[in-house]
Write a protein that binds this DNA or RNA. Structure first.
Lengths: 196, 196
DNA sequence: CACGTAAACGGAGTCGGACTCACCTTATGG
DNA sequence: CCATAAGGTGAGTCCGACTCCGTTTACGTG
């Protein structure tokens, strides 16, 4: 663990190129499902040596985190868009399903979403907070419109969604995932019998 | 990875004693939250050497699995008892909460429950299947009584519960966990608005 | 109660994989 | 075109899971 490149002063051309290459190689490996790809292999397939990898990323974990940040960004931008186009209730429903579809894209993606949602790993603190905010936005819009319960927080719902992403690779998992999502959605709607 | 002790012929007295000691030491470590306790340490605190540990357990993972099997057994026995004492709907509600409380007992326990519920690790295939069966029992009783949806399987619900156990150690997590559980329960009850 | 022997034990050693560091290479601004 | 700081390299370190074989011990038998 060594002093990293300072974020100040723009990167030298070759450094930026290598950084891209590393991220792209890692992306390919992780999204492809090889979640315990070796750093040596990632470095080699990016055409650099491990030392270079460690010049750009504190640890193997940090590299993984970086790879997935963009995916999470996309996801977090969705609620705003959905709320513009639909009722809060429908926006919520669509966002939950969007999450499921995202998890379907690649084994790696679902593992990460799971990590974000279902663990306390400090690596994902940031992503977790942003996802919780995204969900809060939807829940608040819904409860303001009176169609969604107002006693559930974004972070609560986030946790509840965690299990969904662990389902990858099970026979017919997409069907199950959508079902769980619907289950949660129904529990969230105003008018459900409340046991709380 | 070496040929293990054959299960035939009862263990020699000292071997059985050491096996118990190892399980007990591992239990203490894992349930106490140190989920990446080193095999060396576990062996030492059991008063044996690593070689002995590996004579009894194929891998570190196998040892962990063994430690938690008993916990899972207890949990899986609960639905039968609950169904004797309560309506199916109430039995289901209580079982879900029991799961939460179990996760509350120790950090290690919740990590394992999470592993069982939210991953595909073959290590937990058996435990996962038994948990799913336990949940199916409850769901079927409920749908037979007409108070619970009949379109949700035990394994679906199991997945949905996975996220709950990832919440350990968050401020006020028990409250959140109970809330998610209630959310799911409400979605499961017959009479909820169904979006499926 | 020896004593033979199969069972069990110990722990130094191997192996694999993440991470480091001392030295070499090269982009870049003056 | 040169100086120099930024960047790259990869053999080597470290650490932890797992193995191997020489030693010790439980226990059935004469």
């Amino acid at each position: 663990m060594e002093v990293l490149l300072p974020a100040s002063r723009p990167l030298r051309a070759d450094a930026r190129r290598n950084r891209e290459a590393l991220l792209s190689a890692a992306r390919q490996a992780f999204l492809g499902g090889d979640t315990d790809a070796h750093v040596e292999d990632i470095a080699r397939s990016a055409g650099v040596a491990v030392g270079t990898l460690y010049r750009h990323f504190e640890t193997r974990e940090a590299l993984i985190e970086e790879v997935y940040r963009k995916e999470v960004d996309d996801l977090c931008a969705a609620p705003g868009v959905l709320l513009d186009q639909h009722t809060p209730e429908e926006a919520l429903r669509r966002f939950l399903l969007l999450l499921v579809d995202h998890a379907a894209v690649g084994k790696g993606m679902s593992i990460v979403l799971e990590s974000i949602m279902a663990t306390d790993s400090p690596v994902f603190d940031d992503a977790r907070a942003r996802m919780a905010d995204a969900l809060s936005l939807l829940l608040e819009a819904g409860s303001a419109a009176g169609t969604v319960r107002d006693d559930v927080t974004g972070s609560t719902l986030l946790r509840a969604l965690g299990g969904i992403c662990g389902m990858r690779a099970t026979e017919g998992w997409l069907v199950e995932a959508r079902q769980i999502t619907a289950l949660l959605f129904d529990g969230l709607r105003h008018g459900a019998p409340q046991s709380l």
